[in-house]
């Protein structure tokens, strides 16, 4: 958040004077729990990609098929919807078998 503008630099009246500035908003700072991706357990069903409210699930296309790449933590708010809809992640499965594991942010240094 160090790049916030001072009052002399801002457009007046709360006007946003250029389009698409929402892209610059680092909603990842809101996150208190983090989805951690375990590719070895993922079946690439794309549910997480479809449901993510912040388009924070990154994918790539390999041999004409979509493949989950991981999370964009700049935008991910940690809502946990991805883990909730993931068929390979639920409370009954042990953690090591889940494709998405929700972990407290406090466990990470960055």
């Amino acid at each position: 958040m160090a790049d916030l503008k001072g009052w002399k630099e801002l457009a007046i009246g709360g006007v946003i004077d250029k389009p698409s500035t929402a892209k610059e908003y680092q909603t990842g700072t809101w996150r208190v729990i983090r989805p951690v991706y375990k590719p070895e357990n993922c079946i690439n069903c794309m549910f997480c990609w479809l449901y993510c409210p912040d388009q924070a699930v990154e994918i790539e296309v390999v041999d004409g098929k979509p493949k989950m790449k991981g999370f964009n933590y700049y935008y991910c708010k940690g809502c946990g919807l991805c883990a909730n809809v993931c068929p390979k992640s639920n409370d009954k499965l042990p953690e090591e078998k889940r494709a998405i594991v929700m972990k407290p942010e406090t466990e990470f240094q960055d």
Partner: peptide
């Protein structure tokens, strides 16, 4: 020159406005 009026202006910018 599209602009947005009346966006949500929270603790990060309201004070400056």
């Amino acid at each position: 020159n599209p602009v947005t009026y009346g966006p949500l202006d929270l603790y990060d910018y309201y004070f400056e406005h």
